[in-house]
Design a protein around this nucleic acid. Structure first.
Length: 367
DNA sequence: AACAGCACCAACCGCCCCGGA
DNA sequence: CTCCGGGGCGGTTGGTGCTGT
């Protein structure tokens, strides 16, 4: 295992690639495509195994690779995605064009992990370290855990995840719990559901919008998008509410009052100043919400039928554009109200199709 | 200047899944 | 059904350069 059989057949080079080797591989793939990787070394005149060629191509020679340092936006997105996907680097990489899984993995291990720790966040659970440490070390997963056939494609929030699983290192079973979005969705008076540019928040399963089985994704204007940043380093930071939030509801401010608050209960906590008083509402995640079987959600044929049965036995309604617009019209937040005036226009149509696209991208499916 | 420790990252290793024979 | 090879993934390693003493 590991080194393929081809590697034993002849003395093959290992280690760093020389510029000449790179050129040979690049020329070969440019002219002929890679085809069967095991035949590439021979055809390209390389003393390497096919696996090594594949890796070199994917991680270094591919023309669509983005070079250079990761932007803060990319780092934030990686944190967000890691919170949902765990160490599924290839899936995370799939959402960052031009970046490879190896690159992201290295960034995570060398930089992001450290930053999170410095800010009191456990990089495995995305929870405050103090909370994680309340469980003994022996309960924590070991680093040499290998994938088993049963978890190979298992979501971090597998259906079998229990609270204990979570503290043993599994992702929490309640997705919205993780980000604190649930409360935002729940508070229908605010008419506020949250999505982000990164597609991540729109991955919140509609059926988990508490008290409302109409999908939050479709209820929610795609442009209400607080950007989620790494936890603030100082004691008081504001999390940007995104352009449309600012535009439509300038009085809404999402704040973290201190670092521990930021990931309180494993999600983001938001402070929404009350317009009629000097007080503010602290919006926190709710751990008591029903478990989400994330893996099954990911496998949901979201766009294949009008109704599918969710794990929670709640039907997921695929909204038609008409229904979508009707939902928008019923929303009470300023953004939606402004959208009401544009019902049926190209703009709202566009929002709808973007929502769908966002969902499709999120789940690696296409419309 | 020399050394140690650290950080980064390219590449390897070990394992798994899948499809074809 | 089993076996085998290819492709893919995540974890780990080792080389290199940087920084601090």
């Amino acid at each position: 295992m590991g080194r393929h059989s081809c590697c034993y057949k002849q003395k093959l080079r290992k280690g760093l690639w020389s510029p000449e080797e790179d050129e040979k591989l690049l020329n070969h793939i440019t002219n002929h495509g890679h085809g069967c990787w095991s035949s590439v070394p021979k055809l390209a005149g390389l003393q390497r195994c096919g696996k090594s060629c594949r890796l070199r191509w994917i991680n270094y020679l591919r023309p669509d690779l983005k070079r250079g340092a990761f932007s803060p936006e990319e780092e934030n997105l990686i944190v967000e995605l890691h919170a949902v996907l765990g160490n599924r680097w290839s899936q995370i990489a799939a959402r960052l064009p031009g970046r490879t899984d190896n690159e992201i993995k290295n960034l995570w291990n060398s930089s992001i992990k450290k930053k999170l720790k410095q800010r009191g966040i456990d990089p495995n659970t995305h929870k405050p370290i103090s909370e994680v440490e309340s469980f003994s070390d022996k309960d924590k997963p070991t680093s040499n855990n290998k994938r088993s056939s049963s978890d190979h494609h298992k979501s971090p929030t597998s259906s079998s995840a229990t609270n204990q699983d979570f503290f043993l290192g599994e992702r929490p079973s309640d997705f919205s719990d993780y980000f604190g979005f649930q409360k935002l969705n729940f508070n229908s008076n605010l008419g506020l559901s949250v999505t982000t540019d990164s597609s991540l928040c729109s991955m919140i399963p509609p059926q988990f919008s508490p008290g409302n089985m109409v999908g939050s994704v479709f209820q929610t204007p795609a442009s209400v998008k607080p950007s989620i940043s790494l936890p603030p380093e100082n004691s008081s930071s504001t999390v940007s509410g995104g352009d449309h939030v600012k535009q439509a509801a300038p009085n809404w401010e999402f704040q973290t009052n201190n670092t521990s608050n930021f990931f309180e209960n494993g999600g983001f906590s938001w402070t929404i100043p009350n317009s009629s008083s000097s007080s503010s509402t602290l919006v926190k995640p709710n751990h008591n919400f029903e478990e989400i079987k994330w893996s099954e959600y990911l496998n949901t044929p979201f766009f294949n039928g009008s109704t599918v049965q969710s794990q929670s036995s709640q039907p997921i309604y695929i909204k038609s554009e008409t229904e979508y617009l009707a939902n928008v019209s019923n929303m009470s937040d300023p953004w939606s109200q402004s959208q009401n005036e544009n019902l049926g226009t190209a703009e709202t149509s566009d929002v709808f199709s973007k929502d769908l696209q966002r969902m499709a991208v999120s789940f690696g499916q296409s419309l």
